[in-house]
């Protein structure tokens, strides 16, 4: 299974960061190319900027370890696990890691390739630059 990992340091406490990343309904506010999301229990359905709906299963939402994991439903993606971890660096700083494990490998890069920009957007918003103006 192919792995893509992106990470970023955010000048906010891990609780502040996880308040965003651990709320599955907010993904459209910070993930580039996700234009809407609905959450029903452990199921989340996102719609991408290309009009593609994707069904996800939320498999972990642990506010104590600050770990959020989800799987894209099998289809043209044979296997997938997205993992977001928020680590406390002290002094009000957090390290956020966003890993994408996926098969086929090429899709790991297509999905995981967007996660770096997602983290940059979270950082931008949390460090006081407000919500983004557009969702594409």
């Amino acid at each position: 299974m192919a792995t893509v990992r992106r990470q970023i340091i955010i000048n906010r406490t891990p609780d502040d960061v996880y308040a965003v990343l651990g709320d599955p309904a907010t993904i459209a506010d910070w993930f580039p190319g996700v234009v809407s999301a609905t959450v029903d229990g452990n199921a989340r359905v996102i719609t991408t900027g290309s009009g593609l709906p994707m069904t996800e299963e939320i498999v972990t939402n642990d506010a104590i370890q600050r770990r959020f994991q989800y799987r894209l439903a099998p289809g043209f993606i044979r296997d997938h696990l997205g993992t977001i971890d928020v680590f406390d660096l002290g002094d009000g700083h957090s390290l956020v890691s966003y890993a994408t494990d996926c098969e086929p490998a090429a899709l790991a890069l297509m999905i995981g390739g967007a996660t770096g920009n997602a983290l940059k957007e979270v950082k931008r918003q949390l460090e006081g630059q407000g919500p983004r103006a557009e969702k594409t």
Binding site: F31, P32, G33, V34, T48, G49, S50, G51, L52, A106, L107, L109, M110, I111, A114, N117, T136
Partner: peptide
């Protein structure tokens, strides 16, 4: 390759 429709050329 742009599943999320992020890139302007494709948009």
């Amino acid at each position: 390759m742009d599943a999320f429709g992020r890139f302007t050329e494709n948009t």
